[in-house]
Amino acid sequence: MSSFSTDGKSEKSLVKMVSIEKWFGKVHALEGIDFEVRCSEVVGLVGDNGAGKSTLIKVLSGYHLADKGEIYFEGKKVNIASSLHARKLGIETVYQEQALAPNLSISRNIFMGREPVRSLGFMDKKSMDRESMKALQSIGLHLRSPDALITMLSGGERQGVAIARALHFKAKLVILDEPTIALSVREARQVLEFIKQLKREGISVIFITHNLYHVFPSADRFVVLTRGEKIADIQKKDTSIDDLFELIVKPPSHN
């Protein structure tokens, strides 16, 4: 697979995972998966529970190490050993409830662990506030104050804050793990707007979900996993919600 850098595809590849294998004890969680995301592309990663979606993403975000396989980021082979390393490359993962501290303000959350400081480690609150509002506005989220606590925001707004954080820190690839789960219809639509905005900013997105009705309008391409295997990798124009649904529920065929 070293021919990657010279294959000369029309669209630039951002991340490419080749023959990824992962075992948990005797469970073969990922059975040689090839997965690619191109620049400014929104990929819907779909599949039933236990299909291996989360495991694949955790390998990409540095949470798990793959037992076999290679990962290329912007054409270079990388060995993503920690979430910090993934973030340095520009891969940001937005998990459902794990992303934010509910009793801290918006700006303190956006800069959590990466606070801008003036001297002796004292926070530059003014720049934190200003940059927070800027980052929120860039995804089309207009909140009253950077001092508002996360617990006072709606579920959709919380996702927005986490996405704005990824954007501010110059993510090239944002991984959204079930971003619309437990959200109202209106809030889910808001999150889908954020995703469109990310694409417009030139950022690639991996959208993991069960909900085909949410992912279908936003994604350019779909990757379907079943029991640790990739069973489909298909452009939106070549498929439909019903086709995808059939793929997800169909048992994997060994031919």
Binding site: Y95, Q98, A101, P102, N103, R108, M112, G121, F122
Partner: peptide, 19 residues
């Protein structure tokens, strides 16, 4: 101080702080 922000974050949502 940024350390104060880490103290709050650690107590409020340890997983998020660690992430």
């Amino acid at each position: 101080h940024k350390f104060g922000n880490w103290v709050y974050a650690t107590g409020d949502n340890k997983e998020a702080a660690r992430a």
